[in-house]
């Protein structure tokens, strides 16, 4: 359990609440809200997973594997 990570997620939730309020006030289009929600929820979920110690394999590893299978790097 990583408390610092939790705290940081809380800070970012506060930040995004500000944004969401603005969206609601300005009646933002659905596409924008969808994209926004996707990014925020994705990062929050990832952050949560990291903070409870279940870190999924990272994009760095994926990219490395892809490049290795392509034979670009050894």
């Amino acid at each position: 359990m990583n408390n610092n990570m939790m705290l940081i997620l809380a800070i970012f939730i506060v930040l995004s609440i500000y944004d969401v309020r603005k969206f609601i006030r300005e009646k933002e289009s659905a596409r924008v809200i969808a994209a926004y929600a996707f990014i925020v929820v994705l990062s929050l979920v990832l952050g949560f997973l990291i903070s409870i110690g279940k870190r999924p394999s990272s994009p760095a590893e994926w990219i490395q594997e892809i490049l290795e299978t392509m034979g670009v790097i050894k």
Binding site: N4, L7, I11, V14, L15, Y18
Partner: peptide, 15 residues
């Protein structure tokens, strides 16, 4: 204001 609060918040909450 938001920025100030957010900058000070972690300082107060954590060690």
């Amino acid at each position: 204001i938001k920025i100030i609060i957010l900058l000070i918040l972690p300082a107060l909450l954590t060690g």
